Amino acid sequence: MNATSIRLIDPSDGPALSGLLARDAQAYARWLPARPADFYTPEGQASVVDSLLASHTRGLAWPGVMVSGETVIGQISISSILRGPFQKGYLGYWVSSLHQGRGHTSRAVGLALRIAEDELDLHRLEAHTRLDNVASQAVLRKHGFRSWGIAHDHFHADGAWHDKVFWERRLAGGSVS
């Protein structure tokens, strides 16, 4: 088994991401919002990557990819970073169905926690999961996240509104300057 790593997303990741997303579009329809057809193309992903890197440049996000060996297998990000008295961000991730069940997501979340604390100096990370996403909830629990509430009709996917469980994890970072 190849080791799992994460790194900042790169413009050259567009084709790999579009391939994974297109392949898993039906499988992930229940978890992700509806997207236009061009989202699943290399050009569409190039635009997404450019936008993510612009957010990173402004200090609003750390957009990354999950890598197994040399192969991009998914994405992991810390987004909506708030500074000042909050010092927090939101953790999000997905891994290709070809690579699920092998511990990649859990290892990637552990690595993202280090980045949030050491590089981004955050005090808190939050995440959201659908009520029925028990695999993701297990990953979050394993890494010390606690659920703190449910938002009803919070997210629209697969033609319907869905409730979301809110998760939090305090970090050692978070100096306020």
Rank of each mutant, 00 (worst) to 15 (best):
S77P: 00
R114H: 12
I73C: 12
S106T: 14
T129Y: 02
V65W: 02
G101I: 02
L91V: 10
Q75R: 15
L98I: 05
S68D: 08
G101S: 03
G69C: 10
R130T: 13
A108V: 07
G69Y: 04
A116E: 01
T57P: 00
D50V: 13
R102C: 12
G64Q: 03
T105A: 15
S55A: 15
S79Y: 00
I115D: 02
G69H: 08
I78T: 07
K88C: 13
G103V: 08
L91F: 05
K88F: 04
R130C: 05
K88W: 04
R114N: 15
V67Q: 11
T105E: 03
I115A: 06
G84D: 12
R83A: 06
Q100C: 13
L111D: 04
V72W: 00
H123P: 06
S97L: 03
G64S: 13
R107H: 14
L98E: 15
I81C: 11
R107C: 11
K88Y: 00
L82Y: 03
S97Y: 02
H104I: 13
G89T: 09
R124E: 05
E119M: 13
I76Y: 01
Q100P: 09
H123F: 11
L120V: 08
I73E: 10
I78G: 06
T129C: 03
G103N: 08
R114C: 10
M66W: 01
S97W: 06
T71M: 10
R58V: 12
T71Q: 15
L53I: 09
D118K: 13
S51K: 09
G64P: 03
L122A: 10
R58T: 14
L125G: 01
L98N: 11
V65K: 03
D50W: 07
G59H: 11
R58H: 08
K88S: 14
L125A: 00
H99Y: 12
L122R: 04
S96C: 05
M66F: 06
G89A: 11
E70M: 14
P85L: 15
L91R: 01
H56P: 03
Y90G: 04
S77V: 09
V67C: 07
L111T: 02
G64H: 10
I115T: 13
D50L: 13
M66K: 00
E70K: 14
E126G: 11
T129L: 01
G101V: 09
I76D: 03
P63H: 09
R83D: 08
Q87N: 14
L122Q: 07
I81L: 14
R83L: 05
V72A: 05
G101W: 02
I76W: 01
R130W: 03
R107E: 14
H56S: 11
G110I: 12
A61L: 09
R102A: 15
S80N: 12
S79K: 02
E119S: 14
S96K: 01
H104W: 09
I73G: 05
I73Y: 07
D50M: 11
H99E: 13
R107N: 12
S79P: 00
L131F: 02
G64Y: 08
V109G: 04
L52E: 12
D50I: 05
S55Y: 07
S51G: 11
W94Q: 02
